[in-house]
Design a protein around this nucleic acid. Structure first.
Lengths: 343, 343
DNA sequence: GTTAGCACTCTTTAGTTGTGAGTGCTAACT
DNA sequence: AGTTAGCACTCACAACTAAAGAGTGCTAAC
């Protein structure tokens, strides 16, 4: 649906004013905000048509107009200036993310935290998906008479470790056996393939050694699962309360939804675009019907991607937040690429 | 201040009724709740005196009475029956905490999460303090041509690891040198002593090897710091919103306060009692002036203790939550002792 | 197509009134 | 002296009314 230039101008002004003030905007207000030489009556007529087209709505008869979800959508797709990010903001983001010598998880946790503070929204991020990753290496580090730490390194550069406990005292022949098992059954194997079925056949084939090896083998399996699972990092839940006005009593449901992680993970994974905006009901989850999500994706390599996003009310400041999310996401992508590929 | 038996009965009834309903309680209501053969007028007189003594207050002239902080305090200290925990609740807690093969952090995170769900309050826990802990062992696991994982094991059984990156390719002589440094300068050293000053003298004494060793040495130092730092695990922030009524707009401040971690850590550490209840303003932080904190401490050994607590409105159900917090904390203490002492 | 003008709608705020819960006090009772 | 019935009093709360104000939609003229 193509709108006249004047309608577009009016729609944009309504959206921007409403985003700024949270108040329905009337024809007179627009007259001031808009440098257009028509009267308020004309604007009223145009607004009435915009309402008929479904881009604006009235909370009640004698109030100004507010954008509908379709109104926001039109604005985001066609009207919003693709603002270039201020140099100062860029530097602020870079400063915020200048942490080093840390794990991918810590980088992403920091990203959520920082993005939440910066945008005053709730922020989420997911760890790299690591699809098709295989086990590159496994090490066993004895730390006690019966305990050792197993370190797993994936082909995507992720390192996971876990302490495990043997039922009997460790000795060098056991460790040797463990490394044999690792070499024959784990190295080069895709992480997804390490399921309980595989482990059972493996254990079965070990004969009388099985019992002592079980803790080690299952530790490897848990590590493999951890390395596969994309984790969701959540930051700034409390920012939801900044928008009490628009959320009312549903604030609790939203916070609870965010906490769950799993649906967020789906939400982010379902988006194929490089950068995606979902407005209100466009989100598949009803808990988000009054929220907008701005999300971007980072790519470490073709098999290894993740997402970062913010969640706020539908009257979020799209024009200035979208570039921030994009820039931060790109930056995190670079940081992760560095971290994971250097060795 | 010693109250007459009848006054105590009335105070207890007011507290319990108010905790249950959230409504100010009047003399007639008490008449029903109390199996006492006096008239409402007598109760009114008694309540007036309790108010004069500072144990009760009136939101406004023509409303019933609600307990003051002092009222709650008297109730908690002297009136509340030290209820024995139901067997079913015990089993519920045990079931909730039956996770195995995980790190102390994961146990405590789970404890916060579970306790929050169970009590419908926000819950916090701190990792063991590890005072006076020393470095027991350090291992280096090569994982790439230039990267390796350093594993640090403390005398208290805590294991921390970190990936670090060398500026040059690793070779066996470097690793040997690293182990020499470890043996001479780290093993047996208290974690607290590993500060930047010590490291500088250490690096200075290494002469020309210093440059290549710096990443390793500083990684050890970071690990030592991580192992010292008590972390705060937070669960169920969203439960704050269950008490919108009592928190109103301060809900945001409270959530923000919880998120900070550091003050929580102080709060928990400042309590010397085995189990401690802080009511409203008894807390040193003004963000908690409308909240009560129930906290308990676990002891792994004399140098190694931590805390678990819940935070809710002052009209929290002390009688039934205190035993739950205590039981869970004891259980976590046992779990951690097992985890940390077995090797 | 645009605009001035005006009646109309509907929210918001303030003011009014009535109701009910609950108190505090007094005087009588045990 | 402690207890109780009785009653006047207070005050939040809800329901209602009135006035104000913002903003619209429509009509008729430009």
């Amino acid at each position: 649906m193509e709108l006249s230039q004047r309608k577009e101008k009016i729609l944009a002004a309504v959206v921007e004013h409403y985003i700024r003030t949270g108040e329905p905007v009337g024809s007179k207000t627009l007259l001031n905000a808009l440098d257009i030489s028509v009267s308020s009556a004309t604007i009223r007529n145009e607004m009435a048509e915009l309402a008929a087209l479904g881009y604006l709505e009235q909370p009640h008869t004698s109030a100004g107009r507010i954008p509908t979800n379709e109104g926001y959508r039109y604005y985001v797709d066609r009207l919003m200036g693709v603002r270039q990010l201020d140099e100062s903001v860029k530097r602020q983001i870079e400063a915020g993310m200048s942490i080093k010598n840390v794990s991918p998880e810590a980088i992403l946790a920091k990203a959520s935290e920082f993005l939440a503070d910066m945008t005053e929204c709730a922020a989420v991020s997911t760890t790299p998906s690591g699809e098709n990753a295989t086990i590159r290496r496994i090490e066993f580090v004895p730390v006690g008479t019966r305990t050792g730490m197993i370190v797993l390194l994936t082909s995507t550069g992720v390192i996971k470790s876990k302490v495990c406990r043997s039922d009997v005292d460790l000795n060098s022949s056991m460790i040797e056996k463990f490394y044999n098992i690792v070499k024959s059954s784990f190295i080069g194997v895709p992480l997804d393939d390490i399921d309980t079925a595989t482990l059972q056949t493996l254990v079965a084939s070990m004969g009388m050694d099985a019992l002592t090896m079980i803790p080690f083998v299952s530790a490897v399996s848990e590590l493999a699962q951890e390395a596969t699972r994309t984790m969701v990092m959540l930051g700034g839940q409390s920012n939801i309360l900044r928008y009490r006005e628009e959320y009312g009593t549903t604030a609790y449901e939203l916070m609870d939804f965010l906490r769950r992680g799993e649906p967020i993970s789906q939400l982010l994974a379902n988006s194929k675009e490089d950068l995606d905006v979902k407005i209100g009901g466009e989100n598949q989850f009803k808990q988000l019907e009054n929220s907008s999500v701005i999300m971007a994706h980072y790519n470490i390599d073709s098999d290894n991607r993740g997402s970062i996003g913010i969640i706020g009310p539908t009257r979020i400041d799209y024009a200035s937040l979208i570039p921030s999310v994009r820039y931060l996401t790109d930056l995190v992508g670079e940081l992760l690429t560095q971290t994971l590929n250097e060795d």
